[in-house]
C-alpha cells in the first residue's frame, strides 16, 4: 500500500465519494423511482443526476482554479448551486 502514497485529504475525498454512492444505492433500494425527462431531453434517475453533478463539479473546481486561482473552497459553493440545479431540472 505504501506505493499508493495515501494522504488524509485524498482518503477523506474517496470516503466521501464512496459514502455518497452507498447512500444513493440505499435510496434507490428503499425508494425506487421512475426515470424522468429533464431539460437535457434525456431520461435520468437520481444516480444519473449524481454522476452529472460530480463530473460537473470537477470541471467547476478546475475552472475556478484556472481562472481565479484563490479561495478554492468557494468553488464548492458554486458546486452546491450547480448540484441543486441539476437535481431540480435535469
Amino acid at each position: 500500500m505504501e506505493w499508493m502514497a495515501w494522504t488524509w485529504p485524498t482518503a477523506i475525498f474517496f470516503i466521501i465519494i464512496a459514502s455518497t454512492l452507498t447512500v444513493f444505492t440505499v435510496l434507490a433500494i428503499k425508494f425506487p423511482e421512475a426515470p424522468r425527462m429533464g431539460v437535457l431531453r434525456i431520461e435520468t434517475t437520481r444516480g444519473d443526476r449524481l454522476f452529472i453533478t460530480l463530473l460537473g463539479s470537477a470541471f467547476i473546481n478546475l475552472a475556478w482554479l484556472g481562472v481565479i486561482g484563490a479561495n478554492q473552497p468557494f468553488a464548492l459553493i458554486v458546486c452546491l448551486l450547480y448540484a441543486a440545479a441539476v437535481f431540480r431540472w435535469v
Binding site: 506505493w3 499508493m4 502514497a5 495515501w6 494522504t7 485529504p9 485524498t10 475525498f13 474517496f14
Partner: peptide
C-alpha cells in the same frame, strides 16, 4: 486512486 494521490504530492 493512486493517480489522485500522486497529483496532490
Amino acid at each position: 486512486m493512486t493517480v489522485v494521490n500522486y497529483s496532490v504530492q
